[in-house]
Amino acid sequence: MNVVLVEPEIPPNTGNVARLCAATGSVLHLVHPLGFRIDDRHLRRAGLDYWPHVAVREHESLAAFFRVTAPGPHLFFSARGGRPYTEAPVADGAFLVFGKEATGLPADLLSAHRERTFRVPIWGRVRSLNLATAVGIVVYDAYRRLGFPAGA
């Protein structure tokens, strides 16, 4: 599985997602610009000693990411998605794409990929979930639906 963070802004969120990727053997893709430096102490602290176990790929832009990862499959996750994440057609090697904390994924990207855009439902009195929490929900459900890797 591939976890993609587009222009993440908060180091501890990215550190927590990196730890998730280490725990699941997922590849972490970071799409620039980042709201921090990759050697940020808060980022490293959130990831603790797991950084050597995370496969991190950096991309200079969203366009560069798509050039390298075509044909995908790419699945997009946004509070503005139409269907719940449980309906996302996950496949081994899928790219699970999440936007930055403040604004999410660009509106034009979501419009162009409406049929592949999903949301994590929220029914309480908040407007969004923490990025790392949303990523964790989606990644573990994707692995569950794929039958978890051997030994999990």
Rank of each mutant, 00 (worst) to 15 (best):
6 V>E: 10
6 V>R: 10
10 I>V: 15
14 T>E: 04
16 N>I: 00
16 N>E: 05
17 V>G: 00
17 V>P: 00
18 A>L: 04
19 R>V: 06
22 A>T: 02
23 A>Q: 08
24 T>F: 11
25 G>R: 08
27 V>H: 12
28 L>G: 09
28 L>W: 06
29 H>A: 10
29 H>L: 03
30 L>E: 00
31 V>T: 04
31 V>K: 02
35 G>A: 09
36 F>P: 10
37 R>Q: 14
37 R>V: 09
37 R>T: 14
38 I>M: 13
38 I>G: 04
39 D>K: 12
45 R>P: 14
45 R>K: 15
45 R>F: 01
46 A>N: 05
47 G>L: 03
51 W>K: 08
55 A>I: 10
56 V>F: 13
56 V>Q: 08
56 V>H: 11
59 H>G: 07
59 H>I: 03
60 E>C: 10
61 S>P: 07
62 L>M: 15
63 A>I: 02
63 A>C: 03
66 F>A: 12
66 F>L: 13
69 T>R: 13
70 A>S: 15
72 G>Y: 05
75 L>F: 13
76 F>G: 03
76 F>D: 02
77 F>T: 06
79 A>D: 06
80 R>P: 04
80 R>I: 05
80 R>D: 12
82 G>F: 00
83 R>F: 01
85 Y>K: 05
86 T>A: 08
87 E>D: 15
88 A>E: 12
90 V>C: 03
91 A>N: 01
92 D>R: 15
92 D>I: 13
92 D>G: 11
95 F>E: 04
95 F>S: 09
96 L>K: 02
97 V>T: 11
98 F>S: 01
101 E>D: 09
102 A>R: 13
105 L>F: 11
106 P>H: 03
107 A>I: 11
107 A>C: 02
110 L>M: 15
111 S>T: 13
111 S>W: 03
112 A>Y: 07
113 H>G: 09
114 R>P: 12
115 E>H: 14
116 R>I: 00
116 R>C: 10
117 T>F: 04
117 T>R: 00
119 R>G: 01
120 V>S: 09
123 W>P: 00
124 G>L: 04
125 R>G: 13
125 R>T: 10
125 R>N: 14
127 R>A: 04
127 R>I: 00
134 A>Q: 04
134 A>K: 00
136 G>K: 04
136 G>T: 00
136 G>S: 10
138 V>H: 07
138 V>R: 03
139 V>T: 12
139 V>M: 12
139 V>F: 00
140 Y>I: 08
140 Y>Q: 09
146 L>F: 02
147 G>D: 13
147 G>L: 01
148 F>Q: 09
148 F>V: 10
148 F>I: 07
150 A>T: 08
